[in-house]
């Protein structure tokens, strides 16, 4: 008797959980689409910057900037780790933290690690658990990171790098490759290598070459372009992390919903069987009683 009631109770609670996970899956899907649109909108800027750099290179300017130059000796390395504020997204947070801690151990061998900054509550608690001191924490980045907030971090890193307080900046995040593939990576963002300079463009046989006028000068523009593209690059990391988080949550919640469905099925089967055997037993008892009377 107690067994049947218990089974029914359990089935009800699994059903409730399935409702929750299904809703979370739907929410994650909606957020993923939004985050994806934002990431797509952000590519316009990167494309435009690349075009300017190409035009600068075509005009015969040497592409040099303090942010592009590696420092002679690497003594202090800053690390920025991008995780989520919330859990229930499968191995998303775990794998970024694992990659970051591994890299950090490597860095410790050759250089003093500078500041370690962590974004996301999950990452912060994971670092606390691993007993790793964290200088700065950010919890304001959700599924739609704002450029202003990211630019502040970027400017801080730029000024630390230029003034020589740090010699390298690593960022640990989940890179978005496609909607079915995201990989946790640790990338070196400074010295900056994100500017691609086309080596030889003459093969293209482009139509008319535009002779650009540079105001103030090609070098003066370059001075601005490099920090701007670094900021855009860091922003891209945040966007990638946000998109990947939603995908991870979507996948995790989808399998949770499926598992709950399976569990309900097997619980129902046991429940029905228990009920049937109880009925059979009662009938047997009644028949036994009738026979005894007769």
């Amino acid at each position: 008797m107690a067994n049947i009631r218990q089974l029914d109770k359990r089935r009800k609670s699994v059903r409730n959980i399935r409702k929750i996970t299904r809703t979370m899956e739907l929410i994650a899907t909606a957020r993923f689409k939004k985050a994806m649109d934002r990431a797509a909108a952000a590519t316009d800027y990167t494309k435009a910057i690349t075009k300017i750099v190409q035009d600068l290179a075509k005009s015969g300017t040497d592409v040099t900037h303090p942010l592009l130059m590696p420092h002679e000796s690497v003594k202090a390395v800053d690390m920025l780790v991008l995780t989520a504020n919330r859990g229930l997204c499968g191995g998303y947070n775990g794998s970024v933290v694992r990659a970051a801690l591994q890299k950090r151990a490597e860095i410790k061998e050759q250089a003093d690690s500078g500041c370690t900054s962590v974004s996301g509550k999950r990452g912060i608690s994971a670092f606390r658990f691993a007993n790793v001191p964290v200088e700065k924490t950010y919890t304001e980045f959700d599924d739609q990171p704002s450029f202003d907030a990211v630019a502040k971090i970027a400017d801080e890193l730029i000024s630390r790098y230029i003034t020589g307080r740090i010699d390298r900046v690593d960022v640990a995040y989940t890179r978005f490759v496609s909607s079915s593939k995201q990989i946790p990576v640790v990338e070196t963002l400074l010295p900056f290598s994100g500017i691609e300079v086309p080596q030889d463009d003459s093969a293209k046989g482009s139509k008319i070459r535009d002779d650009y006028e540079f105001l103030p000068s090609a070098a003066g523009i370059l001075e601005e372009v490099v920090p701007a593209s670094f900021r855009a690059r860091l922003f891209k990391c945040f966007l990638d992390a946000a998109v990947s988080e939603q995908i991870a949550r979507m996948v995790a919640m989808k399998s949770a919903t499926e598992n709950a469905g399976d569990l309900i099925k097997s619980l129902s089967r046991t429940f029905n069987r228990a009920r049937q055997s109880k009925i059979t037993q009662e009938i047997m008892e009644i028949i036994g009683g009738v026979e005894a009377l007769g």
Binding site: D210, D211, Y212, E213, L215, P216, I221, E224
Partner: peptide, 19 residues
């Protein structure tokens, strides 16, 4: 708003990159 003052652009301006 250029770095050193304002710059007007009318249709058909010559190609330019500026800060």
């Amino acid at each position: 708003p250029m770095y050193d003052g304002e710059l007007g652009v009318y249709p058909g301006r010559a190609p330019m990159v500026g800060r």
